[in-house]
């Protein structure tokens, strides 16, 4: 905490000339192509796009689970070669260890880092306290609600003090009410920690509400169709979702995604048009597009 100033400069994600294809019997299938994204230290960036556009593929490459076919992924200048504790990840399926209690789940990363038992217990308690989960530290995950499970998932990913936090549709399995509460909790946490976040979602409202910037991806093979700055002031409140500014952003993003979703359903001719649009919108703000 004392070195707050240098810490905030960490967590710069850079993805350049990124392409990833899968080998199949019919030859290579491109999942993501010609993609450039970046996340500045302390920035909250979302990726939205029609389903199957490769947004999760991109996130998994940043996490180090997938190797790009071409291009580079770097965090603070060093290339990503595999998963590591400096890139915390939150999964849609919660992925808590069912055989560990809530506290043991949160301790896991610290244990892997070699922190002594007493210290990591104390650290985990503190973190669980911040997330309002101290009463459940000895529960097994099975007994928690979806929202609570995902709070534990986020706390667990943050426990090791990662440079960046990667979230793969973390609230996709939650009901609408819980989802809104979780979004608020996440922005509050992010506001306090000032950690770089890369957030994948198909929920446009969620992306706008949470982010500083939103990347919109094209249908498969995925690439960046547009990059939209979200100028809404912080801290964000739920009431902002009714403001005209929010609604205008929403309308713009919605039409971008609808185009892609239609193309994804429409078959071959879409490939051409899609690439054209992708180039047209790349690097422009939504205001230019509208």
């Amino acid at each position: 905490m004392s070195q707050a100033a240098p810490d905030t400069r960490q967590g710069h994600i850079e993805v350049r000339n990124f392409a990833l294809s899968y080998e199949t019997i019919d030859g290579a299938v491109e999942a993501v192509t010609d993609t450039h994204i970046h996340v500045e230290p302390g920035e909250f960036v979302s990726i939205v796009g029609p389903s199957g556009c490769g947004k999760s593929t991109l996130l998994n490459a940043v996490a180090g689970f997938l190797k790009p076919t071409s291009g580079v992924v770097t965090v603070d200048g060093s290339a990503v070669t595999g998963p590591s504790a400096e890139r915390g990840m939150v999964f849609q399926q919660y992925s808590l260890f069912p055989w560990k209690t809530v506290r043991e789940n949160v301790e896991f990363g610290l244990k892997m880092g070699g922190m002594p038992k007493f210290e990591r217990e104390r650290a985990a308690r503190t973190l669980l306290g911040l997330a309002g989960l101290e009463a459940f530290e000895n529960h097994y995950p099975e007994r928690l609600s979806g929202g609570m499970k995902q709070r534990v998932g986020i706390v667990r990913a943050l426990a090791t003090g990662p440079k960046v936090l990667l979230l793969d549709e973390p609230f996709g399995a939650l009901d609408a009410q819980t989802r809104i509460i979780m979004q608020q909790i996440l922005t509050n946490m992010w506001q306090r920690l000032k950690i770089s976040v890369l957030f994948v979602t198909h929920d446009i409202d969620e992306a706008i509400f949470l982010s500083d910037r939103v990347y919109c991806m094209t249908a498969r093979p995925g690439s960046i169709k547009a990059e939209i700055r979200i100028p809404l002031e912080r801290p964000r409140q739920q009431s902002m979702m009714m403001s005209s500014e929010f609604l205008a952003l929403r309308r713009g993003l919605m039409s971008l995604i609808r185009e892609e979703s239609l193309k994804a359903m429409g078959g071959e001719i879409t490939d051409l048009g899609m690439q054209g649009l992708g180039i047209e919108f790349q690097g422009h703000s939504i205001a230019d597009v509208l």
Partner: peptide, 17 residues
């Protein structure tokens, strides 16, 4: 569940762990 294995890797777990 392979997701649990990925989660462990993201938290710095190596092969033995």
């Amino acid at each position: 569940d392979p997701v649990l294995v990925r989660a462990a890797k993201c938290l710095g777990a190596r092969e033995a762990a």
